[in-house]
Design a protein around this nucleic acid. Structure first.
Length: 294
DNA sequence: GGTAGACCTGGACGC
DNA sequence: GCGTCCAGGTCTACC
């Protein structure tokens, strides 16, 4: 079955996919040559499908093998629409940065969207997995979680969906810690899964929250394992671009951009973008940095 | 409110 | 092959 979804323009599929590292994390699987993004999705009915997502005129096309009920099709449309932020309008961001040479490229490249997971639960866990570790370990921990606790896609059981809160909540803590190599993050992940599964915490409601960003940030930081960096990252994913995800990479970027590679402090990073107000995080994220890595 | 130290894993390096 | 060091954010205890 083929589903077509239109996007608020401008929209460039490849730039939306590669807006940050999520495309490298299962159950995403990106074929660069074919410009095809695959994702194994568990629908609310429990059915597991493989989404084949490509650029299409005016937006994206989603191909799913087999028949789908109207309800299933609607759920896929809603989830994929959220993942790509298809309805988002960045015209005020583009207008705000138009005269900054380091950001003048954003409109032509249709920057602004950050690839999301279909559930915010998944995005919170993946963000916790990025903290205090290297990217390779993040990918490994995420893969372990999915391989051990995700529901398989029937046509290829090696490909699995991201685990549900209920499934993770039921895993014994020592198993989560030892077998997925989550280390000290295991109790954070399990507590979150338990709270979501029991209904104590509705993380999906964060997607549509009309709370002021500062209040939303406080709520995010009440989740164990989510500190200032993770909260800023999650706010960016939610479309609130006014905090900088301040990690060691941010220090490096600012150091090379304005301080000749000399050590800088978090305050220096904040100061560099202080004038951007509500666009602070967005300006940082899409800045045309001198430093591109060692 | 600010800060020091602990928390884990895995890669790099020296022997 | 083994031991040591280091990188990477957040939490807790303490001041």
């Amino acid at each position: 079955m083929q589903i077509s979804l239109s996007a608020q323009q401008p929209f460039i599929f490849l730039n939306a996919v590669r807006s940050h590292g999520w495309w490298q994390l299962a159950p995403f699987d990106f074929d660069e040559q074919a410009s095809l993004l695959r994702y194994v999705l568990r629908l609310s009915t429990g059915k597991v499908v493989d989404l084949n997502i490509r650029e299409a005129p005016g937006g994206i096309g989603v191909e799913v093998k087999g028949k789908l009920s109207k309800r299933e099709q609607a759920e896929i449309e809603e989830r994929v629409g959220w993942m790509f932020g298809l309805e988002r309008d960045f015209s005020s961001f583009y207008a705000a940065v138009r005269h900054e040479p380091k950001l003048s490229h954003v409109e032509s490249k249709a920057y602004g969207r950050l690839l999301r997971s279909p559930t915010f639960f998944e995005d919170v866990i993946k963000t916790i997995l990025t903290t205090n570790t290297l990217w390779g370990a993040t990918k490994r921990m995420n893969l372990n979680l999915i391989a051990q606790f995700g529901d398989p896609w029937p046509a290829d059981p090696d490909r699995k969906a991201f685990p549900t809160p209920e499934r993770l909540a039921a895993v014994p803590p020592d198993v989560l810690r030892e077998e997925t190599r989550l280390g000290y993050r295991a109790p954070y992940i399990q507590t979150l899964a338990e709270r979501v599964a029991s209904g104590d915490l509705d993380v999906e409601s964060f997607k549509t929250s009309d709370l002021p960003t500062l209040e939303l940030r406080k709520k995010l930081m009440k989740i164990k394992g989510v500190g200032s960096y993770a909260a800023a990252n999650l706010l960016m994913i939610l479309g609130r671009g006014d905090f900088i995800p301040l990690d060691t990479w941010a220090l490096k970027l600012v150091s090379h951009e304005w301080h000749d590679g000399q050590p800088v402090t978090p305050a220096d990073v904040e100061a560099a973008f202080a004038d951007w107000g509500e666009w602070k995080g967005m300006a940082y994220w899409f800045w045309d940095w001198k430093y591109q890595g060692d």
